[in-house]
Amino acid sequence: MLFQMGELFCGPGGLACGALHANVEGHPELRIEHAWANDYDEATCATYRHNICKDDESQSVYCGDVRKLDISRDNPLFSEHPFNAFSFGFPCNDFSTVGEQKGFDGTYGPLYTYGVKVLRIFQPAWFLAENVSGLSSANKGGALPKIMADLHDAGYNLFPHLYKFEEYGVPQARHRIIIVGIRKDFPYTFFPPVPTTPDIHDYRTSRQALEEPPIPADAANNELPRMSEVVVERLKYIKPGQNAFNAELPPHLQLHIKGARISQIYRRLDPDKPSYTVTGSGGGGTHIYHYSENRALTNRERARLQTFPDDFVFKGTKEKVRRQIGMAVPCEGARQIFEAILKTFAGIPYKHEHQCNIKFDNSTK
């Protein structure tokens, strides 16, 4: 059973990397391959092409604003790259709990509708949609029900779940809502895979991520960041797990930002815990800081926290690479979910949660 997967808002390829590495032991016929992808940023698309589809000789990656994409059967992107599976990590900027959380009133909030349009027109067998946990509270709690109603009306039974990726072997506290949809004419029920590291004592730590094994000397995207003298001096006073507001800093190194007590500002990793959430931003002390060295992490170290393999090469400037890594879905978490989808369609039992932790009644919608 082969699934060809199309993607909107593909990013650098976190979901695609997880999909391509999804493997059901003893069933080599169960696999997911790349069909086509779209993102608006050229550097991001270059990263995707290089790692997912061998520099895209078949022109299967469309770089451009989704609002200008011809989502129809007449578009060669779709007619020449047929697909029966679909994924989209629709932009989360307006749903994130960090910031104004404009929801549907923002620039990015309505973009999920383009994924719904793909589903309505092409009717793939299944889809996976991903967004931040803040989606559940956006628009006074109305965003998520509206999005799920639209996805259901497109012809799919929905299985939404809030995943805590640190419970799936990812060395990072990253919580994301993932909606798996199965076309209504298929008699399958999806169950979230059971966490592989459910005990807090089994979580993979930031130290393990960065040191086990050591990052190869020739690994790409591993250049040390430039650090100003004042930042280096400030970090000397910040202990692992602390930030600029709870560390004992001398007066000349303290931050005097009115109303700001954001815990990620100049926050060092705790080597004995998973990292805090890797983000796409990078200014004002939010680069993520090493637990023992007085510096921010390299992009390769950030990629390790997102479980990208060391041979996954990111394209673009250091700033663009940092953003790509922060916006991606952790490859390892994605892999486990895709494997559960494959097993669901093949009727292969697997360890799973008894039900999704986000309620949606497919029978009455």
Rank of each mutant, 00 (worst) to 15 (best):
R268L: 12
G285D: 01
A303K: 04
I265Y: 03
G283I: 02
F312A: 00
L255T: 00
R261T: 08
T279Q: 15
P251S: 03
Q254T: 06
T298Q: 15
R302F: 02
P250Q: 00
T277A: 14
G284H: 05
I288K: 03
F312N: 00
R323D: 13
R268A: 02
A296L: 11
H256A: 11
G259R: 05
T277N: 11
K318C: 10
F312V: 00
D270M: 11
A303H: 09
R323A: 14
K318A: 13
K318T: 08
V313Y: 06
K315M: 13
E248A: 15
V278P: 12
H290M: 06
Q306D: 09
V278E: 14
T307L: 08
D270E: 10
D311E: 15
A296S: 12
S275N: 12
I288E: 08
F312R: 00
K315D: 07
S275W: 12
A260Y: 05
T307P: 09
H256G: 06
S263D: 11
R300H: 11
P271A: 13
G280F: 01
N299K: 02
L249H: 01
I288V: 15
P250I: 01
R304I: 06
E301T: 10
P251G: 02
F312Y: 00
P309T: 08
R295I: 05
F308H: 01
R302W: 02
E293H: 14
R304H: 07
S292E: 15
Q306P: 04
R323C: 10
Y291I: 06
P309D: 04
T298V: 13
T317A: 03
T317N: 03
D272G: 08
L305G: 10
D270G: 08
E301D: 11
T307E: 11
H252P: 03
V313A: 02
E301A: 10
R323Q: 15
Q264G: 00
R322S: 13
D310T: 03
L297F: 05
I288A: 04
G284P: 04
H256C: 07
V313S: 03
R304N: 07
R268P: 04
R302T: 04
T279S: 15
Q306S: 07
K273D: 01
L269Y: 12
L249E: 00
D272W: 05
P274S: 04
L269R: 11
T277W: 05
R295H: 03
V278A: 09
L249F: 01
H290I: 08
R300F: 10
S292I: 13
H256P: 04
E301I: 10
K315E: 13
T307N: 09
K318H: 11
Q254C: 04
K273S: 05
R268M: 10
N294M: 14
